[in-house]
């Protein structure tokens, strides 16, 4: 078979090359000293750590070029710890590399596969065991066991039920009602229409009784952004236009995409941008989505003024605020 292709052969493990430290005791001694020095540096690191913990107050700052103005306590504590740990490691590795045997060892692998007769025996044992239990022959036991196991699996599901209440109308309702005043966030001061110049924004929440506590869950649904434009800038249908007051328009601040606070208003373009996922809404067209992943406009709150001239809601939001959910109808 002279045509047989001859492959390149494995020359085998190359002959071991001795290190200088193996042949010359001088080098071995040097390596030993180096390892010792590395361990000593580590010890110094721990001393630095202890010293900075005990002696450096936590309110001292130093200026270090490149790094800037830093807290000395935190910096030296950390550096001490880093040095202490790193150089133990460096010493160990240097020791292993230079002074421990470096002759490569060959170990043989064993085959994972069990011998055929073992595998057959195993199958036989399983079959015999199953047969002895008689599961196949006693379908009544099999089925009732299945039923029992399946039902018992419901227990944890059932017991987890009280993790929280049912949503009911919570996702669809906010605190806004007809006549609720818009107040500043923070500050809780009512706002008159004349308080806002053209181009002004205000972060608002519904008025609450004095001294009452505002739950974060309410803020998460009630937050509203007020924006004042020139009335002629609006491009709204008659109904939506009637929801504005003298150029002031109010939107839910909770993004219709994933619930971040959308309050990034660009006065010139009259666009609202959500900093989380960059959905962009056009304020002049009732917060229509013009860019990004949001699929719905921000809900608009109908506003007007009350007898004292303060801005109030005309009506509650006419749709749920915030991200979508299954039960949402539009």
């Amino acid at each position: 078979m002279s045509n047989e292709i001859e492959l390149i052969k494995d020359p085998g493990l190359p002959a071991h090359q001795h290190r200088r430290a193996d042949e010359d005791p001088k080098f071995a001694q040097r390596a030993e000293r180096q390892v010792a020095i590395l361990f000593l540096i580590s010890a110094l690191g721990t001393i630095l750590l202890i010293a900075s913990y005990v002696f450096i107050p936590t309110d001292v700052f130093v200026f270090i070029p490149i790094f800037g103005e830093n807290n000395l306590h935190q910096l030296l504590l950390g550096l001490g710890m880093a040095i202490a740990l790193f150089f133990i490691g460096a010493g160990l590795i240097h020791w292993a590399k230079n002074l421990m045997p470096d002759e490569e060892v060959i170990a043989q692998r064993h085959e994972f596969r069990s011998p055929d007769e073992d595998r057959e025996d195993f199958v036989k044992t399983v079959k015999a065991g199953a047969g002895a239990a008689g599961l196949g022959r006693r379908p009544l036991i099999k089925r009732t066991l299945g039923l029992a196991l399946g039902l018992s699996g419901l227990t944890p599901l059932l017991l987890l039920r009280d993790l929280g209440p049912l949503p009911k109308a919570d996702l669809t309702k906010t605190s806004w009602k007809a006549g609720t005043r818009l107040v500043t966030d923070p500050g809780d001061r009512p706002i008159k229409a004349s308080d806002l110049e053209v181009g002004a924004v205000a972060q608002t929440l519904p008025e609450i009784a004095p001294g009452a506590h505002r739950a974060l869950a309410d803020v998460g649904k009630d937050a509203v952004l007020l924006i004042r434009l020139r009335p002629e800038d609006f491009n709204l249908d008659a109904e939506r236009l009637s929801w504005t007051y003298d150029g002031i328009i109010a939107f839910s601040k909770i993004c219709s995409h994933m619930g971040c606070a959308v309050a990034l208003y660009e006065q010139q373009t009259k666009h609202l941008l959500c900093p989380c996922h960059q959905s962009t809404f056009d304020v002049t067209r009732a917060a229509k989505v013009i860019f990004g992943p949001a699929a719905r406009p921000l809900p608009q709150l109908a506003i007007t003024v009350d007898s004292e001239g303060y801005l109030v809601a005309q009506a509650p939001f006419n749709e749920p605020v915030g991200p979508s959910f299954w039960e949402r109808s539009s």
């Binding site: 133990i88 490691g89 010493g91």
Partner: peptide, 27 residues
């Protein structure tokens, strides 16, 4: 086959040392 260094002592020292290196770098 497997060609390399025995656990005791070489790999123990190297792997153990590397733990301290990782901790040191994190610190």
């Amino acid at each position: 086959n497997v060609v390399g260094y025995p656990l005791m002592p070489v790999y123990m020292a190297k792997a153990g040392g590397f733990f301290f290196i990782v901790f040191g770098v994190t610190a």
